[in-house]
Computed example of a mutant assay.
Amino acid sequence: MSLVVRRALPADVERLAEVHVRCWQEAYQGMLSDGFLAAQGPETRLPLWRHLLEAAEPAEAWVACYDGTVVGFAGIRRAPDGGSSHPFGAPSSGDLELWGLYLLASHQGLGLGRRLLEAALGDSPASLWVAAENGRAIGFYRHFGFAPDGAADVIPDWENLREIRMVRPRHAPPLL
Rank of each mutant, 00 (worst) to 15 (best):
A8E: 10
R162T: 01
R168K: 13
S2H: 14
V21F: 02
S2R: 15
G139A: 06
L117P: 08
L101R: 02
V4W: 01
D153R: 11
L117A: 03
M166A: 02
G35L: 12
P156D: 08
C65G: 03
A132E: 15
S92M: 01
D153P: 04
D95F: 06
A120W: 11
A8R: 12
S106V: 01
G109D: 05
A8T: 08
G94E: 06
Y141E: 01
T69C: 08
R165M: 08
E118A: 14
L176C: 07
F146Y: 15
A61K: 12
V130M: 04
G135W: 03
R7L: 06
D34G: 12
A59V: 00
G100I: 03
L112P: 06
D34N: 11
A137C: 04
V19M: 08
S92H: 09
M166L: 11
L112N: 10
L175M: 10
A79N: 15
D149L: 00
L52W: 08
E118Y: 07
A172I: 03
A105M: 00
N160F: 03
P80L: 05
G122A: 03
F36Q: 11
Q108T: 15
V130E: 02
L110V: 08
R77A: 14
R7V: 03
P125H: 13
Q25W: 00
A17D: 06
G82F: 12
S2Y: 08
L104R: 05
R22M: 04
M1E: 07
G111N: 13
N160M: 10
S33W: 01
A38D: 14
G111H: 10
R142D: 13
E14Q: 14
V70K: 03
L110A: 12
A8D: 04
L46E: 01
H107D: 03
C23N: 09
R78K: 06
G83W: 04
A55R: 11
V13W: 05
A56T: 09
A120N: 13
R6S: 13
A132N: 10
L103R: 07
I164P: 07
G94I: 04
R114S: 14
N160Y: 04
A55T: 10
V71G: 11
G122K: 12
V5D: 08
L48G: 04
L101N: 12
E26H: 05
R114Y: 13
E26D: 02
H171W: 01
R115Y: 00
D12G: 07
